[in-house]
Simulated scan of single mutants.
Amino acid sequence: MTGKTHITGGIAASLAFAQITDYDPAILLLTGVVGSLLPDICHGGSKMGRTFPLLSKTINMIFGHRTFTHSLLFLFLVNLLLQTFITNDSVIAGLMVGMASHLLLDMVTKNGIKLFFPWKLTVRSPITATTGGHAEYAVFAVLSLLSVYFGYDVFMSYLAGARH
C-alpha cells in the first residue's frame, strides 16, 4: 500500500478506536497517523525512510522490507519501549492502533508480510491488491468514507460532552 492509504487507514482505525475508548481522540488521531507510517521505516522510499534515511538503510540492510518491522514481534517490542518511556496512554494506544492498521493493510498486498518474524512464513489475505493499483484506490476510498463516518461520530460525541 502507498503512504496515503496507510495514513487514511491510520485515521480510520484511530477514530474507530476513539469511539470505544476514553482516550483523547485528537492524540489518538495524530499518533495513529505516525504509527500508520512507522513500519515502513525499513523502506528507504517511504515517508519514514526519507525522514530517517540512516536508520531506514540500517534496518533494511539487517532485516529487509516487510519482515521485522511488519511483525508481531516488532509491535510487542515497540509497545514495551512505549510503556517504559511514555506516560500518556493515548499516545501509546494511537501509535499501536496505527501500526496495527499498517500491518493489516500490507497483508492485503500480493507480497504480504512476515507477521511471525523471525519465521519466514508470509501472511497475506485471501484477496490481494497490487500497491498503487485500482483495488488499492478502492480501499483508499472506503477508508476515506470510514474516516468521515467515524470522525463525525467522534466530533459529535465531543460536542455533546462539551455542552455538559
Rank of each mutant, 00 (worst) to 15 (best):
M1Y: 06
T2K: 14
G3T: 13
T5Q: 09
T5Y: 11
G9I: 03
G10T: 03
G10A: 11
G10L: 02
L15I: 14
I20L: 15
Y23C: 13
P25N: 03
P25W: 07
A26C: 04
L30D: 03
V34R: 00
V34Q: 01
G35L: 01
S36R: 00
S36C: 08
S36F: 03
S36N: 07
S36V: 03
S36W: 13
D40L: 10
H43P: 02
S46I: 07
K47V: 15
G49R: 04
G49P: 06
F52D: 01
F52N: 01
P53D: 13
L55G: 01
S56C: 07
I59Q: 03
G64D: 01
H65V: 04
T67E: 07
F68P: 03
H70L: 07
H70G: 00
S71H: 08
L73D: 08
L73I: 15
F76G: 10
V78W: 08
N79Q: 03
L80S: 14
L81Y: 13
Q83Y: 08
T84L: 15
T87K: 11
S90P: 13
S90Y: 15
V91I: 15
G94K: 02
G98N: 00
A100T: 12
S101A: 14
H102Y: 13
L105K: 01
L105Y: 06
M107R: 01
T109C: 08
K110C: 05
N111R: 12
K114Y: 08
K114L: 09
K114A: 08
F116P: 07
F117V: 12
K120Q: 13
V123R: 05
S125G: 11
P126L: 10
P126W: 07
I127L: 14
T128F: 12
A129P: 01
T131N: 06
T131W: 11
H134M: 07
H134Y: 04
A135F: 15
F140R: 00
A141K: 03
V142N: 02
L145S: 09
L146Q: 00
Y149L: 08
Y149A: 11
Y149Q: 03
F150N: 03
V154E: 00
F155T: 12
F155R: 06
F155M: 09
A162R: 01
A162T: 08
R163T: 14
